[in-house]
Amino acid sequence: MQNQTKSMLPNFFLCKFVPARLLCIEQTFYLAPHRLFFKMWFSMLACVCLLFAFMWRLWAVLPKSSSKPRRHSTSPCKTCIVLGSGGHTTEMIALIRNLDDHQYAPRTYVIADTDSLSEVKARQLEQERSGVEHKDYFILRIPRLREVGQSLSSVPFSVVKALLGSFKILSNMPDLIICNGPGSCISICMVAYLPRLLGIKHIRIVYVESFARVKSLSVTGRLLYPVVDNFLVQWPELLETYPRAIYNGTLV
């Protein structure tokens, strides 16, 4: 019995210099499973406490009905614009067309790395609005959340990849994120919540639901409805089910 226990211990415990007491503790650890359970209980309790702290903090930072920004109104607002696939990009370009170049600067366009058309559209818009002299914008490429036809087993990997890629948006700590529904909005909003949870910065998130949504929200919309600061819809029918939404007419 004694020999068996010894063989289970790492080699360095068996050398001469190890005090007998330490060896004893290790032996009781292996021989007494109830201590293991105690440790497990303790760590589980710690996890639950941590989870509660996290939930409380999340609840504290979730947008309330009257959450006005506390920022200086003359300084430019670092803006992050999430572009997605075809229809979403067309709508987004229309939404931001009238934003002031100097007030919303610099503008970061977040684009999935397989999407070349959105980049063309973004650059086109920037050229139309500002001519040549001030190029106050960046293109940021992030991995796409899910390719069409991707196998389900590889989804967790690409989710992690997309989440890690979304951290790039924090490089210049934007003041504002505008998104309108492509899947990458979710990972970006998750990342944008980190500074808010830690009390570093409140990055304002504005979500605009597509004109195509009359009575029901998109999956992204439903997920982001409780967490974004402003949720805009383009059909008044949606206000009945989603009272926190804002309807100001057709925006695109």
Binding site: K68, P69, R71, H72, S73, C77, A94, L95, I96, R97, N98, L99, D100, Q103, Y104, D175, L176, I178, R204, V206, V208, D229, N230, L232, I246, N248, G249, T250, L251, V252
Partner: peptide, 20 residues
């Protein structure tokens, strides 16, 4: 159909962000 009015969103955002 009404013409496109991209100023609605811009003025909404200006109001929210404290620009006037």
């Amino acid at each position: 159909f009404p013409e496109q009015d991209t100023s609605i969103f811009a003025s909404f955002l200006n109001n929210e962000m404290g620009f006037k």
